[in-house]
């Protein structure tokens, strides 16, 4: 399958440079710092991973743009986009293949946090079902971040601009259920639309999942978020073709 061809090349591209190793290292260090120092993992005296997962949205806010910024900007700048788009591959093969590679990569980084899971199991008797649900929820959320990042990266040939754009847009989505965003729109949007915006919040859906409730609604929310932004990516690529 052609998606597989793109995915394989893209994923091996991550590990061919130090980027992957630096990213994973920083991710693991920060995840640990947040959990143990900011989240007071020990002081809470509770056998769960809430302090670990509750920082993921904030960690993703600047780490995911670092993965996604290169998705299209780098290819556009180095000219390989022209090569890729003139191979007999469909647009979806390319968009999905590249996204899945980035998502798998984020998944690998996430799986490598397993020592924290071992620790909490060593110290007590946590509900591993909740932990599994949280891991899945965190990965789904990473997918949402990455899909937004993919679209932002398709907009520009500058990786820095892609990084900043992605950071901003994802922040808006994380905070969508909070006064920071809602106060801005409340004044001039009908209440029903304000509610729609509030319901788009990453945090609300992630918190539901990380409490151990992997409802179909939250699952569908992240999946449709991903598909919508990938569709937007494909449209942006198409518009750039015409220009």
């Amino acid at each position: 399958m052609n998606i597989g061809v793109v995915l394989k090349r893209e994923l091996s591209g991550y590990f061919a440079t130090p980027v992957a190793y630096v990213f994973i290292f920083i991710f693991l260090v920060l995840a640990g710092v947040f959990t143990f120092y900011v989240g007071n993992f020990y002081e809470r005296q509770q056998a769960d991973l809430v302090p670990f997962f509750s920082f993921h949205p904030w960690l993703y806010l600047f780490l995911i743009p670092a993965i996604s910024m290169r998705l299209w900007s780098e290819e556009r700048k180095s000219g390989t986009l022209e090569l890729l788009m003139t191979l007999p591959l469909s647009r979806w093969d390319i968009v999905l293949g590249k996204f899945l590679a980035a998502w798998l990569f984020a998944g690998i980084a996430l799986v490598l946090t397993f020592p924290i899971w071992l620790t909490v199991n060593f110290l007590g008797h946590p509900d591993n079902g909740v932990i599994l649900a949280s891991y899945i929820g965190s990965w789904l959320m990473a997918g949402g971040f990455l899909a937004i990042g993919s679209c932002m990266s398709a907009l520009t040939r500058s990786q820095v601009v892609a990084f900043v754009l992605c950071g901003f847009v994802t922040l808006m989505f994380v905070m969508a259920g909070f006064p920071l965003v809602l106060d801005i729109v409340r004044g001039w949007l009908p209440l029903s639309l304000v509610d729609v915006i509030a319901s788009l919040s990453f945090l609300t859906h992630f918190n539901a999942i990380s409490r151990g409730v992997l409802s179909l609604q939250d699952f569908l929310y992240f999946i449709s978020m991903i598909l919508a932004w990938l569709f937007a990516t494909s449209i942006v690529l198409d518009l750039k073709k015409g220009g």
Binding site: G13, S78, G79, L83, T86, P88
Partner: peptide
Amino acid sequence: LAAQSHIGYLPEGAPAYEEM
């Protein structure tokens, strides 16, 4: 895709994935 499968193309500057 059918048209592209007939074509071999060297874009200007011969871009390639440099890390490969």
